[in-house]
Design a binder for these strands. Structure first.
Length: 190
DNA sequence: TCCGGGATCCTT
DNA sequence: AGGATCCCGGAC
């Protein structure tokens, strides 16, 4: 079941926690690539580390749309980061997807050594976009529509969630806005 | 630890 | 227009 738009139109910290255990799928030419979300970070509108905290710009304008769409940006000259916009239109909040447990189209059903290699492809925000072939073409996609190339699906999972501070930022370092699934081997390194 | 890479945004 | 910065990853 694809998560409905209402799922995203809620408190960003709630959405960041509840995205853990859900499945993200990128359909490319009829082929599905994807996995289970195991690590997220919340970026709130009044949070100094959030792109939207200093107002709307050409880059961050997807964050000000209603929740449920993607926000993809290019960083460090070579990586993309995939975010899910949350809350009502005009707010400027999102959840960064930081790591996946690969389940579709990433050699996960091959030999064991290939599966363990596949795990190294999605244990970081820049790596997972590369593995799923996500770039700015996938910016502003409605993740709740079945015809979209990227969709996020419900799972019957109730993950054990760990909360920590976020990674790789210099502002608002102390905020406990990072969430990951306890003991999951696909979480990014700290 | 260190640094590449290029877009982005703030400062002039 | 210039430069500091950036939600990273891989090589040391």
């Amino acid at each position: 079941m694809i998560l409905p738009q209402d799922f995203y139109l809620r408190n960003t910290l709630t959405v960041a926690r509840e995205l853990l255990g859900k499945t993200i799928i990128h359909r490319i030419k009829g082929q599905d690539i994807g996995g289970i979300i195991v690590e997220t970070e919340a970026y709130l509108d009044d949070d100094d580390a959030c792109h939207a905290s200093r107002g709307m710009t050409p880059r961050n304008h997807p964050m000000f749309e209603a929740g449920g769409i993607s926000y993809v940006y290019f960083i460090y000259g070579m990586y993309h980061c995939f975010n899910v916009v949350t809350e009502a239109a005009g707010k400027g909040c999102a959840v960064l997807i930081r790591a996946l447990e690969p389940t579709l189209g990433l050699d996960t059903h091959a030999q064991h050594h290939l599966a363990s290699r596949a795990k190294l492809l999605t244990n970081g925000p820049g790596k997972l976009t590369r593995a799923l072939q996500i770039n700015k073409t996938q910016n502003k996609i409605a993740l709740y529509q079945s015809e979209s190339s990227i969709t996020i699906h419900h799972n019957d999972r109730t993950p054990d969630i760990i909360t920590t501070t976020r990674i790789g930022i210099n502002k608002a370092k102390d905020l406990p806005y990072r969430f990951y699934i306890h003991n999951n081997p696909h979480v990014s390194k700290t």
